[in-house]
Design a protein around this nucleic acid. Structure first.
Lengths: 154, 154
DNA sequence: TTAAATAGGACTAGAATAGTCCTCAATGAT
DNA sequence: ATCATTGAGGACTATTCTAGTCCTATTTAA
């Protein structure tokens, strides 16, 4: 299904909430009650986002979390990487023997190019985009981003 | 990790082998021995590909499998869909209550656009591309395929 | 000093995936 | 006709991964 994990999905919900309110610091408990996601789960996600330098945390009383940079500077690719590790569709999971016999490994290079294409697509969308409504007229401002697939092959 | 399942990975190996030899029909056992993937697993994959109309099967002695159409007409998107179901990064798995409280559902529309972008990327690469070596000079022939992300927003 | 908050990691339960196997159906060859 | 070959369909198991929880230590404001 080529799907993201639930945690990544939650992360985008949490981050888009934070992107709408960048002036304040938000405690995990506050985020949990607003988003309706259970506190332990929210905490887990926030920790991962801090490690990925997408969020900055402040310990102690009156502490909490805030975005490490402007929403427009946080790509969806970065969020996905934070939660799920590097964006890569394939792992060369076939035995070495199998690869050699099948010369199946010849196609690995092409997979990398596809990975790159998808990575570019995810890199081109930021939190700022996510916060905006998806209705067409509101997004007409968005400049053209061209992803030349063929250029990846050169 | 945004990764594909192993079965999908195997499927591309199997299909790229078949794409290099489109004249012949190939039995499951032959494919298994050539690719080094266990026969039961190969069979499972081949059945899925037949159901998805990517392969055509012939029963009985001298039977086997062959591509349903030319390699250039089989997109990677079709292969992924065959093995993993529809290509969609997210499922609205957050409780309705959570969505309403967080107004997190506002970002769902944007996810759909990202899904579309990735789908386009996968649709633009075919089996014929996968069979060719990934080395640059050999792929200079490939025409430019532009994926205007912003156009998806209009 | 205490309360509030994050950091880090261990742990469990459940779901999804990978992989195997069995029986039935179809087809060509003898 | 019969048999060997080959795919169809589905059931089943084991393993891995994910989601989710919880505990303890650390930090900081009041």
């Amino acid at each position: 299904m080529l799907r993201l994990s639930k945690l990544t999905d939650y992360a985008t919900v949490i981050l888009s909430f934070m992107a709408r309110d960048t002036d304040q610091m938000h405690a995990a408990m506050e985020i949990a009650s607003i988003t309706g996601i259970a506190l332990p789960t929210v905490s887990k996600i926030l920790k991962l986002l801090v490690n990925a330098k997408i969020l900055i945390s402040t310990r102690g009383a009156k502490g909490g979390y805030e975005l490490a940079r402007a929403p427009a500077e946080i790509s969806i690719a970065a969020v996905i990487s934070a939660l799920e590790g590097p964006i890569a569709l394939t792992e060369c999971s076939i035995s070495q023997q199998g690869c050699e016999q099948a010369s199946g490994c010849e196609i690995r290079g092409n997979w990398n190019l596809i990975n790159q294409t998808i990575h570019n697509a995810l890199e081109s969308v930021t939190l700022a985009d996510m916060v905006r409504p998806a209705r067409s007229q509101d997004l007409a401002w968005k400049q053209e981003i061209l992803i030349p697939v063929a250029s990846l092959y050169r």
